[in-house]
Simulated scan of single mutants.
Amino acid sequence: MRAAVLREFGAPLTVGEVPDAEAGGGEVVVEVLATCVAPYAAEVFSGARRYPLVPPVVPGIGGVGRIVHAGPDATRLRAGDLVWCDVTVRSRDDALTPDITLQGWSSRGEGGARLARYLHDGSFAELMRVPTENVFALPDAAGRDPARWAALGTHVIAYGGLLAGALAAGETLLVSGATGNLGSCAVAVALAMGAGRVVAPGRNRAALRLLADRFGERVRPVALSGDEAADRAAMTAAAEGPIDMVIDLLPPSAPSAVARAAAMTVREYGRVVLMGGVGMLGGDDLALPYPWIMRNSVTVRGQWMYPRTANVGIIRLLAAGTLDLAPERVRSFGLDEVNDAIAYAAAHGGPFDRTALMPRAA
């Protein structure tokens, strides 16, 4: 099979023949129809993000595909089935605290690194080996436009964070990082889940207008000034009432003060979910005041990725049309154009911009 391989950090990916993916027990082989190229992929492959990838590796973060082979322990899956391949792989020997690897992308701790050594390669390839529990049936619509549906991998992250914060219908949510690629997904998913109002702060005024134009009065854009106190006041005023939940999806480049200003808008007994990259590359700590958290009974929770059940939920939202992918701007590339795709994704990382790699495309 053909695949794109990262042979060393800082070098372009190379495309060529590699051994075919073969499934062991509890695994399936999937023909990859489309996979999303993250806007920050160039930072990963350059080494700037310090991800624990070990070259040579076929990278990639899940995707849309068709089953080629399913093992004997799969009782529902059949060759030819259209499926979503979830990148978040968990070890099977500790249900309480399983080790996690993002197949072909990243991992957590020594246990995650061991898992990554076994499930080393991701979706920038014609075929991919995937644990059986990581594939989920897709509706026929996904097969008609797999490049568009490959964005499922971004939406499910935001959905996982909203589930972690127990977002309820009618509640007011503030999305810190709303003008980014992932944050804009959180806005869309929250509204699909029934949020009454979404406060969307950011510096990019064009992106704020895009959110307001797409979603109307339920989205309340706030242009940030950089003054922590003033920004907190502006976000609070935009909500026109209590903010029930804050989700932070800011990138590693964002200063902690921006995340703190957003978090501290939440109401008494409110919830704050941290999913972004603030502090991952250095900088100040978040430094939320102890008395504020305690006296206001605020729940602060970290969430990395999402539970397996989130895959089913986000697919249902998409299949029902409650979450609409049609307005998204999608650009597709063939496998031989992988480095062009990475560069394009880096330059088009705004709200609802998607870059897809289609390994079987001519």
Rank of each mutant, 00 (worst) to 15 (best):
G270D: 08
G80W: 10
R108K: 03
V130R: 03
A229G: 06
I67S: 08
I67L: 12
G71D: 15
I100H: 00
S106C: 02
F215M: 00
L77S: 08
L191D: 05
F333P: 08
A42E: 15
S225M: 02
V175W: 04
P351H: 12
Q103R: 14
V300F: 08
L250I: 00
D324Q: 04
S332V: 06
G16I: 06
W84H: 14
R260M: 07
V64M: 08
V64H: 05
I315Y: 04
A150W: 04
D20A: 15
A263V: 09
M280V: 05
P359C: 08
A233T: 14
C85T: 15
R360G: 02
L281S: 10
Y118S: 02
E337Q: 15
G143C: 09
N339D: 15
A223L: 14
A239I: 04
R209W: 02
G109E: 10
A38G: 05
N339K: 10
V156Q: 14
R49M: 15
N339L: 10
L77D: 08
S123Q: 05
E217T: 14
E43R: 15
E17W: 03
V44F: 10
V18T: 14
V278W: 07
V189G: 04
A229K: 11
A343E: 13
R271D: 05
V199N: 02
D145C: 04
S46V: 10
T154E: 09
F352R: 14
A361K: 11
G109P: 07
L163F: 01
L288F: 07
S46G: 07
A70E: 11
R203T: 12
G170F: 09
T309W: 09
V219R: 01
V199Y: 01
F352I: 00
A361V: 04
Q303A: 13
L274C: 00
P98T: 04
G177I: 01
Y306A: 03
A310K: 02
A147L: 11
A11W: 03
E268D: 14
A310L: 05
A188S: 13
A254D: 13
A343T: 13
Y159D: 13
L323A: 01
G60P: 05
A150D: 08
A166T: 05
L208W: 05
G153S: 13
A168P: 00
W149D: 06
M235Y: 06
R90N: 07
P19R: 13
G153V: 07
A356H: 12
F124E: 05
T355D: 06
M275S: 14
G282H: 11
I342H: 03
A361C: 02
L53C: 05
V32F: 00
V278D: 10
